[in-house]
């Protein structure tokens, strides 16, 4: 009754300054903890790689002997070679085929494109173990005709099966972005459709092709479950080999050294790519601003 003067709070204003302060500290702590959690395994791998002792539970001294030793570990080298062999074949083929498949899918009517894109998601969403197990059963049926099918061939086929969809998924949005008139213009100028595809469309979608290639390589190099079921004749990739060796509790620290090198290499590669990308963009911007001034 007495207090019917409206306060600022009645208009919906609340003082959050105190809460915001607490929240911002809490936020920072949480971010640090989560990033630590994400990087914990990488940090431990790096520490193990520079540990002098072969014993994984005690840190004795810093030493780079395991790095020098990578080339001497025959089994490890063989696994690395196999991994790169399978992944490079699968990545090159998947990038090449996936690009043309994506163009083909894009040319379909919207309705059937949605349907096929849905099917294209199956290898990505399907659990590795189901994909791996079912492909293994199919290859086993083929064994009646080709007895020595398991090994490099089945691994490459299986890797193609799950890498092509990634290439298509990253090329498709770029195709949607390209100007449909581009193709028409090229053909009006007398170029045959497939030549126009290679000369005009492919250059326009090359960013998508490149990111598709990177994704395919990433998925292929790190794959464990699908490869596990589809390899044979002792053709182990790195994941399968590590999985088998940790069962025997006898993993050479050179693996950690190799993994750390690979992580550093990827990091440098990505930062370099980003840097180059930026420079290119910067140049373009300069050019644009120059054009703006001159016009």
């Amino acid at each position: 009754m007495e207090n019917n003067r409206a306060s600022i709070k009645d208009y919906g204003y609340r003082d959050f300054t105190k809460l915001n302060k607490i929240y911002s500290i809490f936020k920072k702590v949480l971010v640090v903890l989560i990033v630590l959690g994400l990087y914990l395994s990488i940090i431990v791998i790096a520490i193990q790689s520079i540990n002098e002792s072969r014993n994984l539970s005690i840190f004795t001294n810093i030493s780079f002997q395991w790095y020098a030793n990578i080339l001497q570990e025959e089994e490890l080298m063989q696994a690395i070679k196999n991994t790169f062999l399978v992944s490079s074949i699968a990545t090159v083929l998947a990038t090449f085929l996936g690009t043309f498949f994506a163009v083909g899918l894009y040319a379909l009517s919207k309705k059937s494109r949605v349907l096929w894109m849905l099917l294209n998601n199956v290898p990505i969403l399907n659990a590795d173990i189901v994909t791996g197990f079912s492909l293994m059963l199919m290859f086993r049926l083929l064994m009646v005709v080709f007895p020595n099918i398991f090994g490099l061939f089945t691994l490459v086929m299986a890797h193609l099966f799950f890498t092509i969809p990634y290439v298509i998924l990253s090329v498709m949005p770029k195709l949607k972005e390209t100007d449909p008139n581009l193709m028409d213009a090229a053909m009006d100028l007398g170029v045959k459709p497939y030549k126009a595809l290679i000369k005009v469309v492919i250059p326009a979608i090359k960013a998508g092709i490149f990111s598709g290639m990177l994704l395919a390589l990433t998925m292929s190099i790190d794959d464990f479950a699908i490869s596990y079921f589809n390899t044979g004749a002792g053709f182990d990739n790195l994941s399968i080999w590590i999985y088998a060796v940790i069962g025997r509790r006898n993993l050479t620290p050179s693996v950690y050294a190799f993994s750390t090198l690979l992580t550093l290499f990827t990091l440098v590669g990505l930062l370099l790519y980003q840097f180059l990308q930026r420079q290119k963009k910067g140049k373009k911007d300069e050019k644009n601003s120059f054009n703006n001034i001159s016009s």
């Binding site: 395994s41 990488i42 005690i58 994941s239 590590i242 940790i246 950690y256």
Partner: peptide, 27 residues
């Protein structure tokens, strides 16, 4: 970035530091 290094190896190194005497504890 962590996804680029081997999943099995990362898991194994996590398993190592979860045991009672481990390399992080010694540091």
């Amino acid at each position: 970035l962590p996804m680029w290094s081997n999943l099995i190896l990362r898991t194994e190194s996590l398993a190592n530091i979860m045991s009672e005497n481990n390399i992080l504890k010694s540091i």
